[in-house]
């Protein structure tokens, strides 16, 4: 197990270097100057301009900036004067806001995590639930309905769904009920709602496509498992259908679903640009998107590094839990494709 994890981390390093290198290279050809953007159309004195460029290292060649950046990611610092220290990664200072990027992530990441876990909850309850119903009642009207509705969910543009939900639950519902029943449609807190109520629409929107996938995987896995020998044996033993379903079928059928949901969590934790934008949710996806529009390089680089790191960790956890769920898989000996 230890060797496996070490190898996965070793594999991650070239991918990380590749992505960040491409990112840095793109910024050299990306038109626009973060310092000029900060001033907008108002005049900026040459002295101020020069001072700002220097403060953010923008006057150095891009490869020097890249090396500096990699150095700043290291959690360990060494200098002859103060010796070895462990201050943790330093992602630099935002050019647009003049604040530490770490502090900005500390503010935004909890919101992304909150939204991700809420969406995953929707995915688990509804996705798995619908999948089970569709499989148990295969060929019934419920199955057709589930298949069709999951196909439709997959085909919905997320922002469109988000906007439509805002219109339905925020505006129309309020009009129909004379202002008694409706949902908050934007932001993360504030009267007249409790904080968690702000989560409902963004979580449903973010979960929509993944819930459809989860349902489809659940259904197909149950159908596949249902035809296997051990299930037939269990049925032949005279176990009730529900005992077979919960005692035997679910155990194996759940593995791919859990894998999917785990990986999905990783993706959601790395920020949902469209959902966060539509619902004005103060998460990291929104923050990185805004940073691109301002050429706020420290925020873009820090954000992408954070995303890569989260995806790595979550994928690793999923793989490890996979080994626990399915004893046939031995991580140490598994050959990577």
């Amino acid at each position: 197990m230890g060797r496996y994890i070490a190898r996965r981390i070793a594999q991650f390093i070239p991918v990380f270097l590749g992505v960040t290198l491409i990112l840095f290279f793109i910024t050299t050809v990306l038109p626009g100057d973060p310092v000029a953007v900060r001033a907008g159309t108002k005049p900026l004195s040459p002295a101020v301009y020069k001072s700002l460029r220097h403060a953010y290292g923008l006057d150095k060649p891009w490869y020097v900036q890249y090396v500096d950046y990699l150095g700043s990611l290291s959690p360990v610092r060494y200098s002859p004067k103060s010796g070895l220290r462990f201050p943790g990664p330093d992602l630099g200072v935002s050019i647009s806001y003049g604040r530490p990027v770490i502090a900005m992530f500390e503010e935004t990441f909890p919101y992304t995590a909150e939204l991700a876990f809420a969406a995953i909850a929707v995915e688990i309850v509804i996705g798995i639930g619908v999948g089970i119903v569709a499989a148990v009642k295969q060929f019934s009207i419920w199955d057709t309905f589930a298949t069709l509705s999951t196909s439709i969910l997959v085909a919905l543009p997320v922002f469109w769904l988000g906007v439509m939900l805002q219109y339905l639950f925020g505006i129309l519902l309020q009009q129909w009920t004379g202002g008694i029943f409706y949902l908050p449609i934007a932001g993360a807190s504030g009267p007249p709602f409790a904080d968690w109520q702000y989560l409902i629409l963004p979580a449903v929107t973010l979960a929509s496509v993944s819930t459809a996938y989860a349902a489809r995987i659940m259904r197909s896995q149950l159908l596949e498992v249902g035809g296997q020998d051990y299930v037939r044996t269990a049925q032949a033993k005279g176990l009730s259908p529900s005992a077979v379903l919960w005692g035997h079928e679910m155990k194996n059928a759940l593995i791919p679903v859990v894998t999917f949901i785990g990986l999905d969590l990783g993706a959601m934790l790395s920020g949902a640009i469209l959902t966060e934008t539509v619902f004005n949710w103060p998460g990291i996806g929104n923050m990185i998107y805004q940073a691109i529009g301002r050429r706020d390089y420290p925020v873009i680089f820090g954000g992408v590094s954070l995303i890569l790191f989260i995806v790595l960790v979550v994928n690793l956890l999923v793989d490890i839990s996979y080994a626990f769920l399915d004893p046939r898989i031995r991580l140490g000996s598994k050959v990577e494709g």
Partner: peptide, 20 residues
């Protein structure tokens, strides 16, 4: 005064209509 921050004026107006 609470200065409430919104990313987008359209969502702010929706929030206004909802009384927030």
């Amino acid at each position: 005064v609470n200065f409430m921050e919104y990313k987008d004026p359209d969502t702010a107006y929706l929030a206004f209509q909802s009384g927030a």
